[in-house]
Nucleic acid binder design. Structure first.
Lengths: 245, 245
DNA sequence: CGCTTGATTGATGCCATTCAACATGGGTGG
DNA sequence: CCACCCATGTTGAATGGCATCAATCAAGCG
């Protein structure tokens, strides 16, 4: 089944989507871009959108396609990525619940968006969203704030890609994940990413990621639990590695 | 002389700055973020700002500093950069006339801004600018558009930093400059960047930049005229190199 | 003219990639 | 529930691209 059709503005709503009638009880209503809207306005926006469940691995927007939809992430983790003609991939962002995805006020989607875990989105047709936003300054203000933050974070990541060694990259990545992801009671973080995806974030190969991780484990800086679990044993050592590893 | 003091909101205006009274005749009024404002509003914004001349090499904002000013670039080219603790630098953006610089709605300047050529800015104290923007949706909308475009371009650049070879990086860079900078009647582009700065944009060393350029010259793909001049002789060849060099 | 700064060229070494073999573990069906 | 299987991850050895170190060259400039 082609997800793009699924997402099209005028496609018949498939079984697993439904109009978003319940902004009141929305899990991310206080953190998503709709947070500053009045109850009436939020409800009006809600009537434009609908909820969609996206299974892990599913791509919801393709690089270069027409920008037909935008969305709030209600639950789950997704990656933003671009590729060269010959298939080399670079992940340019990872988004979490309450983040906003898609390209409002623009004709083209500049990068692909793919679910890393099962996810739920609150999806809006772009045209309708743009129209609504034009009439609601609070919404645009929040979107601006968020975009400025994204830009700052993205530019920070350029320093890592351009100037850091593999060791530094992996250490920086682990610290970043430690900040953004929940930690269970044993101090273990469950990464939403495979080794390949970590490599695609850091601009290195899967083998190099693996080697750096096992080296850090050998040094007692981290613990590796199964394929996706990491415990940051010595955060201070990681911070040292992240700056001049 | 410390430029930071110079830029402070309540510092006595130094000799080379003056209130910006002439938005009517402003060179970038149709392209800068003020373009959509009414004449009255633009004039009100103009009273907040003042013009500043910045000599090449001067840094106007420092990474990590309080965000005290924002500005429109009236003329010239500037770089945005971040550095690691041990001095490795990465240029995260290059801005041209009519672009906007600084971090509105945020406490910290996330990267340094340095003039590559002599430049003129239309400078606003951040607090006053933020206040004005909050009351003017058109301004925020334009800022949002611009920030979304910047984010798209920045993310595109991550692919280059993370996944491209030195050859591909240099070729991509040359094509990008060819698009953004004026070309004289001999087809020569005058780069506003030294080799070191090119290296800092591409995340490679100065020697590698030099070797790639001379190699391309030897192959007849480009011509090098003095230190800053380049002629793109065979654009098609460059495009091939940029994708799979 | 020297002097300084920036750019090119050369020699060498190292880190990350590449290619390849092997291990692991998560999932499935008998 | 265990044996098997395949995707995913780890480890090893060899190569190569880029960095590093160093010398030379070319421009500006006082």
């Amino acid at each position: 089944m082609d997800m793009r059709f699924d997402m099209a503005q005028n496609a018949a709503p498939p079984a697993r989507t439904r109009p978003c009638q319940s902004c009141d009880s929305c899990e991310v209503r206080d953190r998503a871009i709709c947070a500053d809207l009045s109850d009436a306005d939020r409800e009006a926006l809600g009537r434009i959108g609908r909820r969609v469940a996206v299974p892990a691995g599913q791509t919801v927007m393709w690089e270069g396609d027409d920008s037909t939809v935008v969305a709030n992430v209600i639950e789950g983790t997704l990656k933003l990525s671009t590729s060269t003609g010959d298939g080399r991939e670079q992940i340019v962002g990872v988004v979490y619940e309450s983040d906003f995805i898609g390209r409002p006020f623009g004709a083209r989607t500049p990068h692909s968006v793919t679910a890393l875990t099962d996810a739920r989105l609150c999806l809006f047709p772009r045209g309708a969203f743009d129209g609504f936003a034009m009439g609601h300054g609070e919404l645009q203000h929040r979107l601006l704030q968020r975009t400025l933050d994204d830009l700052d974070r993205t530019r920070g990541w350029m320093l890592l890609l351009g100037r850091k060694s593999a060791r530094e990259k992996v250490a920086t990545f682990l610290l970043d994940m430690g900040r953004r992801l929940p930690v269970d009671r044993d101090g273990v973080i469950d990464l939403p990413l495979s080794r390949q995806q970590v490599a695609d974030i850091l601009g290195i190969t899967i083998e190099t990621v693996s080697r750096q991780l096992t080296e850090m484990k050998r040094a007692g800086t981290i613990d590796l639990i199964g394929r996706r679990g990491v415990r940051l044993v010595d955060r201070q050592a990681l911070e040292a590695l992240a700056e001049a590893g």
